[in-house]
Amino acid sequence: MSLLIASKIQNNPKYLQLVKQRDTLSWTLSALVCIMYFGFILLIAFAPQIITQPISDTSVIPLGMIIGVGVIVASALLTGVYVYKANTTFDPIVLEIVQEASK
């Protein structure tokens, strides 16, 4: 990567915006996963009676089982959200930035 291209990219407002946008999405989604997961872990650690209460009077299934499977499914869904956003929004911007810098 030549210095010229680097400085062009560095001064392209689209690039600065891309970095900001992508970082925001990355850290927001990471925080979401951490909140979900550590929410689950903290419930286990400090409020096991909530986690272990059955989902209904006639059922043996504890609420925590639904939450746990829910965390797995939600994690997979959030990876899907990121991939969709990156494919549709970020990739075209990166392409533009690179093309503009190579001119």
Binding site: S26, M36, M65, G68
Partner: peptide
């Protein structure tokens, strides 16, 4: 056992995002 299943999975979204 489910606690381990969940714990071993949630590292993956973090790998993707960061």
């Amino acid at each position: 056992g489910l606690i381990f299943s969940v714990g071993w999975l949630v590292g993956w979204p973090i790998i993707l995002f960061l």
